[in-house]
Computed example of a mutant assay.
Amino acid sequence: MADFKAIVNDVKTGKSYNVAVSGHHANSLDGKNIGEIVDGIFVGLPGYKLKITGGSDKTGTPMRADLPGKKRVKLLLSDGLGFHERYPGERKRVAARGSTISSETVQINMAVTEYGPKPIEELLAGDGEEKKE
């Protein structure tokens, strides 16, 4: 069973929220690709639509949207995600992970595309904050 850490970015306010995803919700995200729109119920945001924008595995290797599959491969890069050149023309072999979420993925980055009826702060607030009266 896979467990993920989802980083949900609220594009209106610019805030990001760290949400733990486990159980059948995590299994539902397995096999999804970068760029897909998923239901917010997987991360505790019913009524919301989220776009998968990236992620990384347990070693911190970033996912690339232009690399199909789940594998971790070494690419010869001159610029882009995972490498930035120090001088013009520099190239380097860098590890990158494919665009498909797998059991080896630890972190998933998401952005809100459609908002639900309740605010995000209210849905993702801990139980201790809501019951203080």
Rank of each mutant, 00 (worst) to 15 (best):
G82V: 12
E104T: 09
G35P: 13
V8M: 09
V106S: 10
T53D: 09
E121Q: 04
S102P: 08
G23Y: 04
K131I: 11
Y48C: 02
D57E: 13
V94I: 15
G89Y: 12
K49G: 08
T59G: 05
Y17K: 05
R93T: 13
V106I: 07
E129N: 06
K58L: 15
R86L: 12
G69M: 07
K131W: 00
P62A: 06
K118L: 13
D30P: 00
K12W: 05
L77K: 14
T105P: 10
E114H: 12
P46D: 04
Y48F: 14
A125N: 03
K32D: 00
I37D: 14
D10T: 05
E36I: 09
G31I: 08
D10W: 09
N9C: 05
D30V: 14
P62G: 02
D39K: 15
G116V: 04
E36D: 12
R91L: 04
V43G: 03
R91T: 15
V19M: 05
L67A: 08
I101Y: 06
A2W: 00
L50I: 07
P68Y: 12
K51E: 12
L45D: 06
R72Q: 11
G82K: 14
P68A: 03
P117T: 13
Y48W: 08
S78H: 12
R86E: 08
V112Y: 00
L45E: 05
L67T: 07
R93G: 05
D3K: 02
P46W: 00
G40Y: 08
T59M: 06
N27H: 13
P68D: 15
A111H: 01
K74A: 02
E114G: 03
M110L: 08
A20E: 12
L67K: 03
A111E: 14
N27K: 14
E36V: 09
E90T: 14
G126I: 02
F42T: 08
S99H: 03
K58W: 15
V38W: 08
H84T: 14
T100V: 13
I108K: 03
D3M: 10
M110C: 07
T105Y: 07
K74P: 03
I108P: 01
T59H: 09
I37R: 09
M1Q: 06
G116D: 03
L75G: 11
P62R: 00
G98W: 04
G116Y: 01
I7S: 10
P119V: 00
Q107W: 06
V8R: 04
I52S: 08
K132I: 00
A125R: 10
E133S: 13
G54R: 02
E85M: 07
K5C: 14
A20T: 11
S22F: 10
K71A: 11
L75Y: 00
G69D: 09
H84D: 04
A96M: 15
H84R: 10
T61K: 04
H24D: 15
I101V: 15
D66W: 03
A96D: 08
N27D: 15
A65N: 05
I37Q: 13
K15E: 03
E104H: 11
G44S: 12
H25M: 07
V11S: 09
V94Q: 01
H24K: 09
T105M: 11
N18W: 02
S22I: 05
N18I: 00
I41H: 07
A2V: 15
A111V: 08
K5G: 03
L76V: 10
L76Q: 08
K58E: 15
G126C: 07
R86N: 14
V112H: 01
L75V: 14
T59W: 08
G116N: 07
